[in-house]
Structure formats: structure tokens, C-alpha cells
Simulated assay, not measured.
Amino acid sequence: MKTAVVTGASSGFGAAIARQLVAQGHTVIGLARRQDKLQALADELGERFVPVSVDLTDRTAVDRALGDILRRFPVIDVLVNNAGLALGVAPAQQAQLADWDTTVATNISALLHMTHALLPGMVQRNQGHIINLGSTAGAYAYAGGNVYGASKAFVHHFSKNLRADLAGTAVRVSTVAPGLCSGTDFSKVRLGSDEKAAALYQNVQALTPDDVAGTIAWIMNAPAHMNVNYIEIMPVAQSFAGLSVHRSA
């Protein structure tokens, strides 16, 4: 059985990932800000789920938490960089710079910090797996996607560059890029209300957190000689949009 660190573990994809991995007998160290939700998940899952309350954008706090984790669990087999968010759908020229900064700090900087901390141990042991959560927004631009989409494109390309650097080792790196998914706080945080988030999924059978978690569990449990570089998943109801054309009056 493996020991996995999962960021953004208190709800949505992270909680679903924790449930599936614990059910398979793995140990999950779940990192997130909301201690109450982490504790509720720990009460549900038992001793194989280890809650760690930390703000992933606070480097000092993360270093302290990682030091404690590595003292208790010297061998981390899997890092799932799941924590991420989007704020607003305003066009770039109207977006709030603070929202961009928060998106970059969460989706890029925190992912880099976690990877930088845990990757050397994996390389030293010549065993390990980093699984990064991307998004279809990283491949297909849309109005209002701006920095969020760019941050997920970064995740995909960073994962590919990690693979290049890790050639000759047995350490694996994968990106999972989901499309439209309900049952998370993502759209509520992005749009600012439950009503707007609910409207987005009305009359659509979207992906669920369990769909994403099952994909991650399959990748993680694949044979050691097999690396899933990138996998993109969408609900059947979602497909590719046509290119936008603006016509003069």
C-alpha cells in the first residue's frame, strides 16, 4: 500500500480522492485550509486519513507542515497536486489583479512548492508519482478564462518538463485534465453564489468528483512501468466550441 499526499483535500475532488484511496487501503495525508471539513473527513475515514490544516499559499506554514509530515511519514509515494481555484469570469481588461495573484499563488506557486519539497525524496528512492490536476481550460481558451486557463496550461507543460528531467528514473508524472464537473465548490467560489453555480449545471449530466478520483486512482495503480502523461476527461454532454467570430454592425 502507498502513502499519498493530497492537497485541497477538504472537499470536491480532494475529498473524493481521499475516500477512494483510503478504501483501497492506502494512507492519505490530506492538506487543506478548512480544519472543520478535514476533521469531518478524518472522522469518516479513520486512521488512514491524516488531516493537515494549512494554507498552501503560506510558504512558511507549508514548510512547517511538510517538516512534520516527513518526520511522521518519511516515504511519500504519491503527491496529488489537486488544490486550485478560479475567481470570476470577467474579461482580462476588467479583472481584479488580486484575483489573478490568488489564482497564480494557488494553482502554480503552491503546486511548485509541494513538488519541490517532495520530488527529491522520490528521486533518491527511485520511486514515486506526481499527479497534477489540470483542466480542459488549459487546452481550450474561452472568454473569461484568462489567468485560470493560463495557470492550467502551465500545469500541463510543467508536468511534461518534469518528465523530461526525470528521464532515467522510475518516478512518474501525470496530468489529469477534467472538463465540466459538478459537486464541488469550484463554481461557487468562481461565480460567488450557489444560484449561479447551480445554473451552470442545470439540465447537464456533468462529471462528478468520483469520476475524477477514479481516474486518478487508476493512474496511480497502473503498472510501475507505465506512465500516463496526460489524460483529458469530459462529460458526454460537453464538447469543443466553435471559434468566436465578431461581426461589425
Rank of each mutant, 00 (worst) to 15 (best):
V80H: 03
V80N: 08
N81R: 11
N82W: 01
A83L: 12
A83T: 09
A83P: 11
G84P: 01
G84F: 04
L85W: 03
L85T: 12
L85M: 15
L87A: 10
G88C: 02
A90G: 01
P91H: 04
P91T: 01
A92I: 15
A92N: 10
Q93D: 04
Q93M: 12
Q94V: 06
A95P: 01
A95G: 05
Q96A: 15
Q96G: 11
Q96W: 11
L97A: 14
L97E: 15
L97W: 13
A98T: 14
D99C: 14
D99Q: 08
W100G: 14
D101Q: 15
T102G: 15
V104Y: 08
A105D: 15
T106G: 06
I108R: 14
S109N: 13
A110V: 11
A110W: 09
L112H: 11
L112P: 02
L112D: 06
L112G: 00
H113P: 03
M114F: 05
M114W: 05
T115A: 10
T115Y: 05
H116Y: 00
L118G: 02
L118S: 02
P120W: 12
P120N: 13
G121P: 02
M122L: 05
Q124S: 11
Q124E: 13
Q124H: 04
Q124D: 14
R125L: 00
R125H: 00
R125C: 00
N126F: 12
N126S: 15
Q127S: 15
H129I: 07
H129L: 11
I130V: 15
I130E: 00
I131P: 01
I131H: 04
N132S: 07
L133Q: 03
L133G: 01
G134N: 01
G134L: 10
T136C: 14
A139F: 12
A139W: 09
A141H: 03
A141G: 14
Y142G: 07
Y142K: 11
G144R: 03
G144F: 04
G144P: 02
G145S: 14
N146Y: 12
V147G: 02
V147L: 14
G149P: 06
A150C: 10
S151P: 09
S151D: 02
F154V: 11
F154R: 09
F154D: 10
H156D: 06
H156M: 13
F158I: 08
F158G: 07
F158Y: 13
S159L: 10
N161H: 14
N161P: 02
R163E: 08
D165C: 09
D165K: 13
L166K: 08
L166I: 08
L166R: 05
A167D: 02
G168Y: 09
G168C: 03
A170Q: 08
V171D: 04
V171Q: 05
S174G: 06
T175D: 05
T175Y: 08
T175S: 11
V176M: 06
A177K: 06
A177N: 08
A177R: 06
P178C: 06
G179P: 10
L180M: 14
L180I: 07
C181A: 12
S182N: 10
S182K: 08
G183E: 03
G183H: 03
T184Y: 00
T184F: 02
D185R: 04
F186L: 12
S187M: 05
V189N: 10
R190V: 01
L191I: 04
L191M: 14
E195C: 05
E195F: 12
E195K: 07
E195P: 04
